[in-house]
Computed example of a mutant assay.
Amino acid sequence: MEILGWIIAVVMFAVAFIGLVYPIIPSVFFIVGGFLLYGWIVSFDEMGWIFWIIQLLFVVLLFGADTFANIVGVKKFGGSKAGMWGSTIGLLVGPFVIPVAGILLGPFLGAVIAELIFSRTGLKQSLLTGIGSLVGFLTSIVTKGFVMLLMIGIFIVFIAI
């Protein structure tokens, strides 16, 4: 059963990493799902309350990383709240409207269009805001990937000890 538990956990972790570049997939739920399924199939004995508190803190960090990276990216390049919302909407809609390229074009175009319509900034500033949203998105991917690796590393340490 332990081999089955590891296989399922690894598959869940792999799906979580796919979610880094395809944000429709809720990465954090797949990471935690991998822990829970492993525990259900094998045993929760090694995953005590300290493990779950540590993982809960990382989950909160992962949820905050997206929002924070987007805010910093857009604000750093002079964008407004409209640009932040446009970027977020573009991130969610882009992959469906423009498959593959929509993951990068979505947040960029969403921020640019929102800035042009709602903030009435010029084209130059709107484009800068779009670049900021893209920088924020890419920063978020790196940050979340690092945190997810830490979560999995801690899981392995707790299971192996």
Rank of each mutant, 00 (worst) to 15 (best):
residue 54 I to F: 13
residue 18 I to P: 09
residue 58 F to S: 03
residue 115 E to L: 08
residue 10 V to T: 15
residue 42 V to M: 08
residue 49 W to R: 06
residue 114 A to P: 07
residue 132 G to L: 07
residue 103 I to W: 10
residue 154 I to T: 10
residue 120 R to W: 07
residue 142 V to Y: 07
residue 98 I to S: 03
residue 56 L to Q: 02
residue 78 G to P: 09
residue 6 W to K: 04
residue 53 I to S: 08
residue 21 V to Q: 11
residue 52 W to A: 00
residue 136 G to F: 10
residue 38 Y to C: 03
residue 11 V to H: 13
residue 91 L to V: 06
residue 119 S to V: 00
residue 55 Q to A: 05
residue 58 F to T: 03
residue 25 I to K: 09
residue 147 V to A: 01
residue 145 G to K: 01
residue 101 A to F: 13
residue 115 E to F: 10
residue 143 T to R: 06
residue 153 G to W: 12
residue 20 L to H: 12
residue 80 S to M: 07
residue 16 A to Y: 13
residue 53 I to Y: 08
residue 61 L to N: 01
residue 73 G to S: 14
residue 55 Q to G: 03
residue 3 I to Y: 05
residue 101 A to I: 15
residue 87 S to P: 09
residue 3 I to D: 00
residue 126 S to G: 03
residue 49 W to F: 10
residue 136 G to V: 07
residue 66 D to W: 14
residue 50 I to S: 14
residue 111 A to T: 02
residue 52 W to Q: 02
residue 152 I to H: 09
residue 14 A to C: 13
residue 55 Q to C: 04
residue 89 I to P: 08
residue 24 I to D: 14
residue 133 S to M: 09
residue 7 I to C: 15
residue 70 N to G: 14
residue 111 A to P: 04
residue 7 I to A: 14
residue 75 K to S: 14
residue 10 V to W: 12
residue 34 G to K: 02
residue 12 M to T: 06
residue 54 I to D: 00
residue 116 L to W: 11
residue 9 A to V: 09
residue 136 G to K: 04
residue 35 F to C: 03
residue 158 F to A: 06
residue 149 L to S: 08
residue 160 A to I: 09
residue 9 A to R: 08
residue 12 M to I: 07
residue 34 G to F: 08
residue 124 K to M: 09
residue 66 D to L: 14
residue 32 V to N: 11
residue 155 F to G: 01
residue 40 W to G: 03
residue 26 P to K: 08
residue 124 K to D: 14
residue 110 G to Q: 00
residue 86 G to W: 06
residue 126 S to L: 01
residue 147 V to R: 03
residue 19 G to P: 13
residue 34 G to Q: 05
residue 138 L to I: 15
residue 159 I to A: 06
residue 83 G to P: 13
residue 69 A to I: 11
residue 98 I to T: 10
residue 65 A to N: 10
residue 68 F to Y: 15
residue 24 I to E: 13
residue 43 S to A: 11
residue 119 S to Y: 02
residue 76 K to R: 15
residue 25 I to H: 11
residue 143 T to I: 15
residue 112 V to P: 00
residue 74 V to S: 05
residue 89 I to R: 04
residue 99 P to Y: 13
residue 125 Q to F: 04
residue 67 T to K: 15
